Amino acid sequence: MSRPPGRGVAAGEYVSVSSQADVERADVERERAELTARPEAELAELKGIWMARGLDAELAGRVAAQLTQADALGAHAGGAPRLRAAGRVLLWGVIAMAATGAIGRLVGMSV
């Protein structure tokens, strides 16, 4: 009994993408806990990130404070953009798996 072409590749890709999504969710939850437990340290960390990107200390502090006030989790963990990125990876992973299976069927081999 032969297995459908690409099934192993598809399963591997699914596991990989699912693992990445799990890591992203865990990172967001960890950041949420840190913001609750030590908000001043998290603000200082964000200020340091902006300083490393080239802002002077005063402006970096203002940017960090304003971003934190508007959306603390989004500013510190990437928030929704990271989750959307994981969704894009999942979508394109599924498309790649389908294409791999279709190519395998066309040429009659397991890819």
Rank of each mutant, 00 (worst) to 15 (best):
residue 1 M to T: 11
residue 2 S to Q: 13
residue 2 S to C: 01
residue 3 R to I: 13
residue 3 R to C: 01
residue 3 R to Q: 15
residue 4 P to N: 09
residue 4 P to L: 15
residue 7 R to P: 00
residue 7 R to C: 11
residue 8 G to S: 10
residue 9 V to E: 11
residue 11 A to L: 14
residue 12 G to Q: 01
residue 13 E to D: 07
residue 13 E to L: 15
residue 14 Y to R: 08
residue 15 V to L: 15
residue 15 V to S: 07
residue 15 V to N: 02
residue 16 S to K: 02
residue 16 S to H: 05
residue 18 S to V: 10
residue 19 S to H: 06
residue 20 Q to T: 09
residue 20 Q to V: 10
residue 20 Q to N: 10
residue 23 V to A: 14
residue 25 R to E: 12
residue 28 V to G: 02
residue 30 R to V: 12
residue 33 A to P: 01
residue 33 A to Q: 12
residue 34 E to K: 13
residue 34 E to L: 15
residue 34 E to I: 08
residue 35 L to H: 03
residue 36 T to K: 12
residue 36 T to C: 08
residue 37 A to S: 13
residue 38 R to L: 11
residue 38 R to E: 14
residue 39 P to D: 12
residue 40 E to C: 00
residue 40 E to M: 06
residue 40 E to D: 14
residue 40 E to H: 04
residue 42 E to G: 05
residue 42 E to I: 07
residue 43 L to M: 12
residue 43 L to P: 00
residue 43 L to Y: 06
residue 43 L to Q: 14
residue 44 A to K: 11
residue 44 A to Q: 14
residue 46 L to T: 03
residue 48 G to K: 01
residue 49 I to S: 07
residue 50 W to E: 14
residue 50 W to K: 06
residue 54 G to D: 05
residue 54 G to P: 02
residue 54 G to R: 00
residue 55 L to G: 00
residue 56 D to A: 10
residue 56 D to W: 03
residue 57 A to Q: 09
residue 57 A to S: 13
residue 58 E to A: 14
residue 58 E to C: 00
residue 59 L to H: 10
residue 59 L to A: 13
residue 59 L to S: 11
residue 62 R to F: 14
residue 64 A to C: 04
residue 64 A to M: 03
residue 65 A to M: 03
residue 66 Q to L: 13
residue 67 L to K: 10
residue 67 L to S: 07
residue 68 T to D: 02
residue 69 Q to Y: 11
residue 69 Q to P: 01
residue 71 D to M: 06
residue 71 D to E: 12
residue 72 A to C: 06
residue 73 L to Q: 04
residue 75 A to N: 03
residue 76 H to F: 13
residue 77 A to E: 03
residue 77 A to P: 00
residue 79 G to K: 09
residue 79 G to S: 07
residue 80 A to C: 00
residue 80 A to H: 08
residue 80 A to M: 10
residue 81 P to T: 05
residue 81 P to L: 08
residue 81 P to F: 10
residue 82 R to M: 13
residue 84 R to P: 02
residue 84 R to S: 11
residue 87 G to K: 02
residue 89 V to G: 12
residue 91 L to V: 12
residue 91 L to I: 09
residue 93 G to C: 11
residue 93 G to Q: 04
residue 94 V to N: 04
residue 95 I to Y: 10
residue 97 M to P: 00
residue 97 M to V: 08
residue 98 A to M: 12
residue 99 A to W: 09
residue 100 T to H: 07
residue 101 G to S: 14
residue 101 G to N: 04
residue 102 A to H: 01
residue 102 A to Q: 05
residue 103 I to P: 00
residue 104 G to H: 04
residue 108 G to I: 03
residue 108 G to R: 05
residue 109 M to L: 15
residue 110 S to A: 15
residue 110 S to G: 08
residue 111 V to D: 07
